[in-house]
Structure formats: structure tokens, C-alpha cells
């Protein structure tokens, strides 16, 4: 029989975590953990910490630099949020393709990140937007760029006693364009075979000033594409050699063959999607 604690306030939760570091399984929407605890009941944790009642972890606030999203905010709230739809449309889109409505009504953005699946649906967009994580501890908070969060297969930078409290996403640069696409096993209720988000900033002369990519299901963790980004920097679109991009995609990702797809498919489609993102052929997305 496991013990269930549902604190009302963040300090209370942090105190519990600090008092028994590493002992609690933190649960919020439960859309991943309840599956695990049903299919593998022998891995039932002894102590559950239910953070769904913490008001501090709920909701979205617009700030000067961007938006703060409480870690336990549901994807449904996020995908409908007017500011998100306007300024961070890729996030609205990724939330809308996570599972299906009954999942989005429960699943939280923080949970999607902390579950640390290599296929996490919202990870690519958070990487592309350059999100930062607000990580709370009994002794105070710290900040971490999201790109430093995933440290290996299902391993994160969260230390014992820490709790992801919010995600901060800056406004995208003025002259930037986004590209997001999830290639799943089907149109809804799907796990990604490859997914990508890109934020590309061009100056008035068509020179790339910045390019940030996030991908999922192409490596042991959600990942960025550092060598692709580096290659693009300072180049005009017409000077970009597709073969160079493809080669760098190959350096940046390490896809595997699994029950859902093949290494060859993931590698090739990743390259195609990166090129599509760069060349801005977003109109080629399927009409539906």
C-alpha cells in the first residue's frame, strides 16, 4: 500500500521533498504515471506526491519577456490560451497534437517535460523557443535552460528534492518564423516517430540571424541541432547547400529502430523536415 500526499501549497510540497529526497513519485495529470503503475504494478512507488492541488503551479502569466506557464497547467488550457495562440502558435499546435482531447484535459506541460520521453510531444517546441525552466527547492529556486534539462535516456537535471515549478518562454524575435510538425503513427493518439520545431530569424537581407531547432524521437532525449544551427548562422537562404544540412542533421541526431519506425526513415525524414523548415515551405503541410 502506497502513501499519497496532496499538499495545498508549494512550500509544503518542497518541504516534503526535502525531508525525504528521492522518495516521492511526483504526479500531476497522471497520463503517463497511471499507465506505468497499471502495466507495471510492481514498480509502484511507496510515496506519491500529488502536485495537482498546488495553485502556484497552475496557469499562465504574460511577462515583459514572454510567458510563464505553471508546470501543472494542462495542455488543454495552454492550447486554448489566446496569448499562446498568438505569440507561441507552435506551442498551441504541439499541445493540440499531444494524445487526444481526453489526454490534453489532464496532461500537463511540466509532466510532459519531466516524464522525459525521447518522444515528448511538447519538447521540440520548447527547445525551439528557447524555454527556461524554473526549478524549485526548499532552499530556493534555480533557473535552467531547457536545452540542458535532458541528460540521457529518461534522465533529467532535476536533483533530489527539486520540483519543476514553471516554464518560461521568451517572445520569439520579431523577424522570426516557426515551423512545427509531428510525424506520428497516426493522426491522433499517436506517439511521434519524428517531430520537429524550428524558429528561424532572418534579417531584412534574408541573412539567417538565428536558427534554433528542437526534435523528438530522433535520439535518446529530445534534442537540439547545434551543428545545423551553426551552419545556418550568417548564411543567406540561397547559399545553403542541402547536402551540408543533411550531413549536419546526421551529426546532430542518433535515431534508432524501434517498434514504431526505422533508423533510415527517421534520419531521412528528419533531414527533409529540417530543410522544409529552413526553406520555409510551410505551405506544403497537408491541408488537413
Amino acid at each position: 500500500m502506497s502513501e499519497w500526499t496532496r499538499p495545498r501549497h508549494l512550500p509544503e510540497a518542497l518541504e516534503l521533498l526535502a525531508a525525504a529526497p528521492g522518495q516521492y513519485r511526483v504526479i500531476s495529470g497522471g497520463t503517463d504515471l497511471m499507465v506505468e503503475s497499471h502495466l507495471a504494478p510492481e514498480r509502484h512507488p511507496e510515496f506519491w506526491l500529488d502536485i495537482s492541488g498546488l495553485r502556484e503551479l497552475q496557469g499562465l502569466q504574460i511577462t515583459e519577456e514572454g510567458i510563464r506557464i505553471g508546470a501543472a497547467t494542462s495542455l488543454e488550457v495552454i492550447r486554448r490560451h489566446a496569448e499562446v495562440v498568438t505569440h507561441w502558435p507552435m506551442l498551441a499546435a504541439s499541445a493540440a497534437v499531444t494524445g487526444a482531447p481526453p489526454i490534453q484535459n489532464r496532461a500537463t506541460l511540466g509532466g510532459n517535460v519531466c516524464n522525459a520521453s525521447p518522444a515528448a510531444d511538447n519538447a521540440p517546441v520548447l527547445l525551439a523557443y528557447g524555454a527556461r525552466l524554473e526549478i524549485a527547492h526548499h532552499h530556493g529556486s534555480r533557473w535552467l535552460p531547457y536545452m540542458d534539462f535532458h541528460q540521457g535516456y529518461r534522465k533529467t537535471a532535476l536533483q533530489a528534492g527539486e520540483l519543476l515549478s514553471a516554464l518560461w518562454i521568451p517572445y520569439p524575435p520579431k523577424h522570426s518564423r516557426g515551423y512545427f510538425r509531428k510525424v506520428g503513427t497516426r493522426a491522433a493518439q499517436a506517439i511521434a516517430k519524428v517531430s520537429i520545431a524550428a524558429l528561424i530569424e532572418e534579417d531584412s537581407g534574408g541573412m539567417i540571424q538565428g536558427a534554433r531547432f528542437g526534435m523528438a524521437s530522433v535520439a535518446a532525449t529530445p534534442c537540439t541541432l547545434p551543428s545545423v544551427s551553426q551552419y545556418l548562422l550568417g548564411r543567406a537562404l540561397r547559399d545553403i547547400a542541402d547536402a551540408q544540412v543533411r550531413q549536419r542533421v546526421g551529426q546532430d541526431i542518433a535515431p534508432i529502430q524501434d517498434i514504431r519506425s526505422t533508423t533510415a526513415y527517421r534520419l531521412e525524414i528528419a533531414s527533409r523536415l529540417v530543410l522544409e523548415a529552413i526553406h520555409g515551405r510551410s505551405e506544403s503541410k497537408k491541408e488537413d
Binding site: 502495466l39 487526444a100 491522433a188
Partner: peptide, 28 residues
């Protein structure tokens, strides 16, 4: 287009969950 029973090395269905045996949803 979607449905494929995959087998493990003992001849048992490997994609033995609804998340991995893909039937069409209304969105498909």
C-alpha cells in the same frame, strides 16, 4: 496502411498495447 502485428524472438506479439498496435482514429 497501419496495422501490423510485430513479433518478438519467441513469436509473441511485440506491439501488445493499443498505443503500439495502430488502428485508425476518427482523425485518420
Amino acid at each position: 496502411l497501419y496495422e501490423d502485428v510485430l513479433w518478438n524472438e519467441r513469436g509473441v506479439m511485440a506491439n501488445d498495447r493499443l498505443t503500439n498496435y495502430i488502428i485508425p482514429t476518427s482523425a485518420d
